[in-house]
Design a protein around this nucleic acid. Structure first.
Lengths: 344, 344
DNA sequence: CTGTTAGCGCATTCAC
DNA sequence: GTGAATGCGCTAACAG
């Protein structure tokens, strides 16, 4: 492997017969340069295959045109879609994306943040994990941060997420309208704002319908597949099992599907099922899954735009904004009225 | 937003009452420093919350400890898993990942590559799109590149992918052993090495079994959902429709599922279905899907390790290696013997 | 318009 | 062991 080719402005300047600053001027075309010289420089740049060194530029200007994105689990299909929105928006604005996966570990998250700061990213998009205290970190360093999807309790920064309260409320009301009264919720991890908010929406809907919320019907704490299996088994072994199960998280849902399968439960005849996060393949489940869809790419786009605005604002008044995107209920075959069951 | 806090080695040196080079020495501990001073410096670093500036270091050393990763479509669930493997390996080795999504556009890919070069990444992991000529680019710049999943025709660089020929062969043989003779293949885009190789494996298996390969049974060119819908419709309208369909790509497969659903075809009674790429949710399709699984995270890990080795090797003999990972067939309910059909 | 100059923060000789 | 000096490639005043 031959030593890395490094054509610098100096080389270009020499070949074009101009000074380095003239080269810089045409590269950044902020300062006027006479057409003739500009042409020379451009020619020299092309001839030498010159590419400005973003590292050197970053050192000089203090801006890297890089943003960091930290997600808790990139194998959760929700995040790639968000990332697509982020990456697309960032690229169009001339930014690159440094991707970090915290794997749901606060320690990893903290390490990643340090690395990002050390790399002098211009800003960070953060979907934090439970027990995360990293926002303190960020604030201390004065690095713009926009929270995405998962919002920490107190946040002076901007944030973008789905309106999960509305989403949880809407989903619950739909089940209630269908005639369900015994509705269980696998609420996920209540240290996570989306899950907390969905549960809150659930509570509100139940209260408004004057329906009791039984302790046995509320299961929280886990967001992995195995947790979904265990929770679902527990629910169905109850003396009075629920007629509908609402699942706050897509990984939990897969566990529920597995448990339902093992117990040979018929959906929706014996129990209705409603999930959060909609994917194209939900349509092909057996039966197809009723789910609450989030605007994932839009979320990424909005968050990135907000972050970019915050960065551009710099020392001006901080852009603190909390966007809540509407969710959409997609009704399919996994939910039905509980009356069907009493006929049996 | 207050101006970005920037604690430099200078500040640390002043507080600790030593010179900058001593600070540098303890930060990189390559040069011996007396314990007493080391302690002072460490204390000063902690007090000032000092974080070395990776940008300045990169400029100085010529190494950024950043690798670029370009994928064609991050919303294709295959890539996030690969990325997880990459990111994990990279992080453990002290590298960060600059993520790019080419969105299956060669032009985007080329732009991303330029950006990455300009950012002085130490190496690039590239899953290229069709008609990509970017490897020439990379070679010209002398930047280490390892191809991943999709390998260009001629490659002097290293590469890591599934042994797709074996995978296609194995899958086809499985269908043949089941008794199928009329096997169709949605081969994907033949400009992509995985698809080309799978088709080759298919051909070999058919030939070995002395089975003819009918032109109408071989559909290639598209890898999007809509293409899968169209291709599947076409196949089933044939005078002699296939008894089994093998689908080379997961997005095509979703289209096939949709078409099958619309045409009210029973799987596997009327037609067997076999897909490539296995995901946890394939189990919950109706019926559950027989699929060829790739070792996605391992692929990411292996590719990253190979790249890192190439980078460390620097001017030494180039590490050119072509890893082919074995695939695994996961038999589920979407495939069965065609005899079942003749009973009907 | 154009060239000269002075660092950005750090790693690395080289003297001491 | 330690510190002063040099420059990585570039931008941003500032003179001309």
């Amino acid at each position: 492997m031959k030593p890395r080719t490094k054509t610098t402005m100096k080389d270009v300047a020499k070949l074009a017969g101009v000074s380095i600053s003239t080269v810089s001027a045409v590269v950044n075309d902020r300062v006027p340069v006479s057409p003739a010289r500009k042409k020379q420089v451009l020619a020299a740049m092309a001839a030498l295959d010159f590419q400005p060194d973003a590292i050197a530029r970053g050192l000089k200007t203090g801006r890297t045109n890089v943003i960091g994105v930290i997600v808790p689990d990139i194998t959760n299909a929700f995040y790639p879609e968000v990332i697509r929105g982020v990456e697309d928006t960032a690229r169009k604005a001339g930014y690159s994306v440094l991707l970090c996966d915290s794997n749901e570990e606060p320690a990893n998250e903290a390490n990643h943040l340090n690395t990002l700061f050390s790399r002098r990213v211009d800003g960070v998009l953060l979907a934090c994990c439970t027990d995360s205290t990293s926002y303190a970190h960020a604030a201390r360093r004065g690095c713009p941060v926009v929270f995405i999807d998962r919002i920490p309790p107190v946040s002076m920064s901007g944030s973008v997420s789905t309106d999960n309260l509305q989403a949880g409320n809407m989903a619950t009301r739909y089940l209630i309208d269908l005639g369900h009264e015994k509705i269980a919720i696998l609420a996920g991890h209540l240290g996570l704002s989306p899950h907390r908010d969905r549960l809150e929406g659930f509570r509100k809907a139940m209260q408004e319908a004057h329906l009791p919320i039984r302790d046995e019907y509320l299961i929280a704490g886990d967001i992995q597949i195995e947790g979904g299996v265990a929770a679902c088994r527990k629910l169905l072994q109850l003396d009075a099992p629920p007629t509908a199960i609402m699942v706050s998280n897509n990984k939990l849902l897969l566990g529920v599907l597995q448990a339902l399968d093992e117990l040979n439960m018929k959906v929706p005849e014996e129990v209705s099922l409603l999930g959060f996060d909609d994917y194209i393949w939900n349509r092909y489940f057996n039966p197809s899954l009723t789910a609450v869809a989030q605007s994932t790419m839009e979320m990424g786009k909005a968050a990135c735009e907000l972050l970019l605005r915050t960065i551009d604002n710099n020392d001006e008044a901080p852009v603190v904004q909390h966007l809540r995107l509407p969710a959409e209920l997609r009704v399919r075959a996994s939910t039905t009225s509980p009356r069907v069951r009493s006929h049996a």
